[in-house]
Structure formats: C-alpha cells, structure tokens
Design a protein around this nucleic acid. Sequence first.
DNA 1: TATTAGCACTCAAGAGGATAGAGTGCTAAC
DNA 2: GTTAGCACTCTATCCTCTTGAGTGCTAATA
Lengths: 343, 343
Amino acid sequence: MLTDRQLLILQVIIDDFIETAHPVGSRAISKKEEIPYSAATIRNVMADLEDMGYLEKTHSSSGRVPSEKGYRYYVDQVIAPTIQESNLNVVKHIIQDGFVEFETLVQKSAEILSDLTTYTSIILGPEIYETKLKQLQIVPLTQHTAVAILITDTGHVEHRSFSIPDAIQSSDLEKMVNILNERLKGVSLIHLPDVLNNEVVSLMRKYVNDFEKSYEYLKSAFFDEQPAKLYIGGKSNMLMQPEFKDVEKIRSFYSMMENEHEVINLLKNTQNGIKVKIGHENNVDAIKDFSLITASYQLGDEQMGTIALLGPTRMEYRKVITLLNALSNEMTEALYLWYKSNG
Amino acid sequence: MLTDRQLLILQVIIDDFIETAHPVGSRAISKKEEIPYSAATIRNVMADLEDMGYLEKTHSSSGRVPSEKGYRYYVDQVIAPTIQESNLNVVKHIIQDGFVEFETLVQKSAEILSDLTTYTSIILGPEIYETKLKQLQIVPLTQHTAVAILITDTGHVEHRSFSIPDAIQSSDLEKMVNILNERLKGVSLIHLPDVLNNEVVSLMRKYVNDFEKSYEYLKSAFFDEQPAKLYIGGKSNMLMQPEFKDVEKIRSFYSMMENEHEVINLLKNTQNGIKVKIGHENNVDAIKDFSLITASYQLGDEQMGTIALLGPTRMEYRKVITLLNALSNEMTEALYLWYKSNG
DNA sequence: TATTAGCACTCAAGAGGATAGAGTGCTAAC
DNA sequence: GTTAGCACTCTATCCTCTTGAGTGCTAATA
C-alpha cells in the first residue's frame, strides 16, 4: 500500500511522462506547485517507488519512467474511482441525421473516437448472430447466376452471388426461398443453422425437386461463415507518437494491423465494461509497448460488439477511459431504444 | 538519341539500382560480364548520360542514380517494346471457385497482386454506373424504419437504411417501389436520375399520395452519391523498401493513403491501357518518390475500373507492367464473357 | 581517334574522444 | 523527517579523424 505522499508523486510522474514522453527528474517535480518537498526528498520517494516496482529508469542516472505495474496502479487506483458517468452525445448526433443501420453508427463513432484521441480505434462490429432474420431473397441475374440477399431486423444486409448449376430449376429455387422465408422469418441468425436442419430440411425435401443440390448452394452462400466486421480508424495517428521513431516498431505494428484475424483475436473475449490491458498484458509481442482499452456495448446481457482504442502505454488513460465509457453507455442505450421500438 | 553503348550502360545502371537501391559506380559496372569497357570509359559515358539528364549523383563523388527522365526512357524505350502479352490465370482461378460478383473478383486479384510484387496495390472498383438496374426493393423493418435495396445485373448490391416519417404511408412506399421497378428495370445506373426525373416523377405524382416527401427520401437513399469502391492491399509492403528509413516519409505516405478521396483522385482520369507515372509526374507531393502504374479494364469502349500498383520510383517496372498488363487483359476478357452470357 | 591507366580529389559514413547537462545516491547538517 | 551539497554517472551532441568508394582529368596506349 502506498502512502499519500508516494501516491501523489507517482501520480505527478505519470502525468508528466504521459504529457512529455521524457523521463521525469526529481528537480522538475519539486518545482511543481502541488509539491512542497525538495528534490532530495523526492529522490528518496522515487527510490522507494522504484524498489516497489512502480517506476523504472532507462539508465542508471536517468529520470524515472512509469513501469507497467505503475500504470496498472495508476489506472486502477487513481483513474478508475474518479471516472464520471458522462454522455458524449456522439451517437445522438449521428442518429439525428436520419436513421442509420447500426453498423454505420459504430463506424462513424469510431472515426470520431480516433480523431478525438490521436490514437488508433478498433471496432468489432455488432455481432449479428443475435439479430433476427427479416427476409431472405433470391434475385436471378441470368440463367446461371443469382444473388441471394439476407435482411435482418436491424437493417443489416448480407448478400452473396452464386451460380446455378444446370440441374437446378429456377422454379425450385423459388419454392425453396418461399419455404425458407415462411419458416425462418424472425429466427435469430445464430439459431438459423439449427432450425434449418431440424425443421426446414424435411419440408423442402418433400416439395423441391433435386433438393439436395439447391440446398448445398444456398447453405454455402450464407450459413457457412459470417465474417466479423472490423473497422480500424486513425492508424496513421500512431506515427505522431514520439515512441514511433523506430521504423522496426512501425513495421511490426502495421503488419499486425493488416492481419484482420490477429486484430479480431485481440478484441475477443472482452467482458462487459471497460477493460484496460497494458503492454505485455496483451500477450501479443507486436503490441508489447501498447495499451489497449476496450469497451463493449450490449443488449440486455448479450454482448453486441467491442470498441477499443490502441495507443502507446504512455497513453492519456483518463481521457480515453472517460470517452470509451461514455460511448459504450450511449451505444447500449441506443441499442435498447432501438429494440424497444421494434416491439 | 542514345548510342547503343549509352543505352546499354543506362540499362545496366537502372537494373542494378533497382536491385540494390545503392548508387552504382563505374568500377562495379565494368566488372559485369556483358560490359567489355574499362571503368574509365564507363565514367565518360556516365558523365554524358548525366549531362543529358538520364542520371544523377547523390553527391559530388557518389555513384550514379537514375533520374526520373532516366526511368521514363527506360520504361518507354526499353521495357514497353518488349512486353509480351501473357496470361496470369488469376481470374480464371478465382472464377473456378464458383460464381463471384465482379467486385469480389477485383478485390482478390488485388491481394494477389500486392503479394506478388511487395508493393502496394490500389483498386478502384468497377464503376457501377454502366451496369443496369435489376431490381429495387424496400423492406420495412419497423413502423418507422426500412431498408432499401438496389440490385444490378452484375450482382452488385447496394443498400441504405432510412427512417420513414409519420406523414408517409407504407402503402405509398409500396406503390412507389412498384412503379420504380416497372419503369427503371434495365436502365443503366448512370441514366437513372434522368429517367427518374423525366418519366417517373409525373407518373408517381398521379398515383402516390404525398409523393414529394416519399420521393425525397428514396432519392437521398440511393441517387445522391455513389461511393467509389476502393481497395488497398499490402500497405505495409512499403515499409520493406529501403527508401522508407525516414519516419517522415512513412507518415506522409500513410496519411495520404488514409484519405480515400485523395487516392481516388490519383487513379482517376486514367485512360485505357497501361500508364506509368514516375515521381513528380503524379503531381502529388506525398508520392513524389513513388511510381504509380495503372491499368484499366473495360467492357467494349467503356472503362469499368482501374487497377494500380504503387511503389518506389526504384520499382521493378518490367515485372509490374507485365503483371498488370496480363491482369487487365484477363479482367476485360472476363467482363466480356460475362456480358455475352447475359445476352 | 577511341580507350584505358593512373592519380589527385571529394564526400559520406563511421569511429573515437571531449564536453555539457540532466539526473542520481549518499552524507551531513538542519 | 527533511534538505543542501557534492561526487558521480550516463546520454547526447559536437568535433575530428580515417577509411573507402567514387569521380574527373590527363597522359599514355592501341
């Protein structure tokens, strides 16, 4: 447990370092208004804080720099208790421009977020599994091609083009779609494969000629994989950070960000609420010098998606956490209102 | 006009520099098998080539580096005449995996392209204006929201969500869509606004209550702006290039690439065929050290889209031009077959 | 006359050394 | 418990020196 004085000094050091990115020396601290101690006293306290692992030196006679443990303490003990529930009015603003589909809303919020923070924002789009099927359609283009369109009750639209083998009659396809629409309307996407296999298959086998083949085609068009929607904003913001002087660091950062799969993994398994992962806590080597702050938005108990900000460990935690907190509240609220109005 | 010897030496210098990224000295050249001259002779030739503007020095006693004029000559006189029509079989490969919409095809080709070259690929998606409307649909989601879906004969799907003001009856919307479908089917997207204003408006005014408002909504949903589809692949490839040691360069490159608008402008106004723009020829300061090679694919005389590769001026022109040429031929061919089979 | 060998010269890049400045730790005094 | 003072440490920067790759020019050669 830290004494009041130790805490004060830790705080001042971290604030200073976050602002300047330079190691902080005892003399600079003692000059600050809120600090009534001399440089020598500060030095003693700093030595203690270093022993406890909250501070580090870059070399034996340098000023101090916060360690990951230091940031952790700062975030948990200093920042977290003081976060005020606030409202950003970002979402409201976007919605006022007219109805938008939820995905667009998320994307725009993300852009705003990265502009506001000069860090990189990452958004894992609303998990569409929980949304329900509104309508399924097949529009023939030519004799051998067609496009299948799937519309959810949130206004999300998925579409796939596919070709129709000679063996399949277009009337068969039509019949099939009719059956599908009748049976699947209102079913949530995550249950779609189940319902499909249990209830619909037998029905279709009865009415549709050469059913197996048609079914295979439809199935592969829609139900095989639902790619997660990933938005990344402000990647070049990162280049403004002074810690990015090293080309090698830039390289590893960017090639990681180009790999969708890896980024998605980073955001997965986040629980509700705000989560701060500092440096090595991310367990990913490419971002061992970064902190990732994630927030999720949800409907009821169901998590819908994740918003995150990625920046150097020397991040403006207070600002970022406040922002993300406000935004995730707004998103959750917007989602709730949405579903309520959907009855 | 260059003598044979001058041309030979210019060629060797450019090839060498493209490979190593180091200024090329006279001694190194004279050691090459295909060069029967001594270093001193080479020096005289090099001095002449420099006087003519084909070569440059980085400092007064450095080796020579190709100038933009040098690259220009190299591309126009050395490379261009030797390009062989070839086929990459990329497109065929993708199409064999099943019917895909044209946009997907373009995107996949782009990925392959950037992997193959270690440069950055940029693709301006098929201009959808020339394609024809297949079907227009409005699917109501709730009492106050709906999603409008537009399907083209190429299998391209656009969708917009919008809210329905109280004043508008859903039966009116339905009527409207029926009229639109009847009248607009088969109209090419680029003529849509005209036909809409000239033929359809009067008809609708007759049948639809409170038409003006509904119309405004539909119009804003679809016909205001068609965002060009832009794909960029292998941005981090650029970081592998040795010329990218300077963080400032990286910064200006990446912030330019994040600005869709600017990138689109770069590719616009490309004519048919392969076009090579070297360094300052691009008229964009951020890529004054880059070359941009563009190829378009078309249907008949109508240009459909543009494929481009962006790399350092020290680019493997032969390889890139051959690749792009092959790919654009393939795309054009695929497009032709496509439309033919559409009757 | 065209080519080549030879030599003086130039410049960038890297190594080594000196210096200034910001910082520390420790000790003794308050 | 706090602070002043001092010796010490390390980095960053600047300067100088050296090396090596390269050039241009001139005189000799084929």
